[in-house]
């Protein structure tokens, strides 16, 4: 068992009076891929957004319980929200390229964090694009608009943009929705490399993807943790009937 990177303790989450996550506890190991899956409205996106406090952009929301990253409570007053979101990057289901060139998309975060030297930025851009398996596709056209890339390339650009900030944790919320099988396979393949350096928490876009890429997986239903275990345990021998029914397509 590797070290725990993220420890979630008794997390409950509320949108106004509506509770979306109920007393949820989970250890997320370092340098592994943890899949969080379940039917719609199970609280999966909310859970992911809790890990870098992205929900704070939404009014009238409230989290109870503790989330520790490297034993530090992310809700502690001393934690800088900007720093937290640098440490815990997020890729969304729909690619969100900024209306600028590929290079500027990539350099946007590093520039904001104070890096100005062109050579340093170029180094970060190249390294991050390589990690996201996009460098070979775009190295000769970095000054073209990011919007000219295919959907799969745009999504890998978004991954690379997160990587450019040198995060510790990467959250991916159904990053392959709407992508063709080749683009999906490229992203899945790069995740296997990325986990060597980062901790990855992903909401897979289907159960099959969860089975292919996860080291561990957790099944959520109506904001509750139903079952957690190794990918082998969850996708081959789940112990809870609800998990079994869901992964075999019998409910959900």
């Amino acid at each position: 068992m590797t070290d725990t990177k993220i420890k979630i303790e008794n997390l409950s989450f509320f949108y106004g009076k509506k509770q979306a996550i109920n007393d949820f506890s989970l250890d997320i190991p370092k340098n592994r891929i943890m899949s969080v899956f379940g039917p719609a409205k199970s609280g999966i996106t909310t859970l992911l957004r809790s890990l870098n406090r992205l929900y704070e952009l939404i009014p009238d929301t409230r989290a109870e319980g503790r989330i520790l990253i490297d034993n530090e409570d992310i809700h502690a007053p001393s934690v800088s929200l900007t720093q937290l979101r640098r440490r815990v990057g997020m890729v969304f289901d729909v690619p969100t390229p900024l209306p600028m060139s590929i290079f500027d998309n990539m350099a946007y975060g590093p520039r904001l964090s104070g890096i100005k030297r062109r050579s340093e930025l170029e180094g970060i851009v190249e390294q991050s694009l390589k990690m996201a398996a996009l460098w070979e596709d775009v190295c000769d056209r970095l000054d073209t608009p990011a919007a000219s890339l295919s959907g799969g390339q745009q999504q890998r650009l978004c991954m690379a943009r997160v990587l450019a900030l040198k995060p510790e944790v990467i959250l991916l919320d159904r990053p392959c929705s709407g992508l063709d099988p080749i683009s999906t396979a490229k992203i899945e393949e790069s995740l296997q490399e990325l986990k060597k350096q980062f901790t990855i928490v992903i909401a897979p876009h289907n159960i099959q993807q969860g089975g292919r890429i996860s080291d561990r997986a957790v099944f959520m239903l109506s904001g509750n943790l139903i079952e957690e275990g190794t990918a082998e345990e969850i996708f081959a021998n789940p112990t809870d009937k609800r998990t079994a029914d869901y992964i075999t397509g019998r409910f959900g």
Binding site: Q208, G211, R212, A231, E232, F235, A236
Partner: peptide, 9 residues
């Protein structure tokens, strides 16, 4: 073989 079938479809 069984793991490959279950996980890799």
């Amino acid at each position: 073989c069984l793991w490959l079938i279950a996980r890799q479809q």
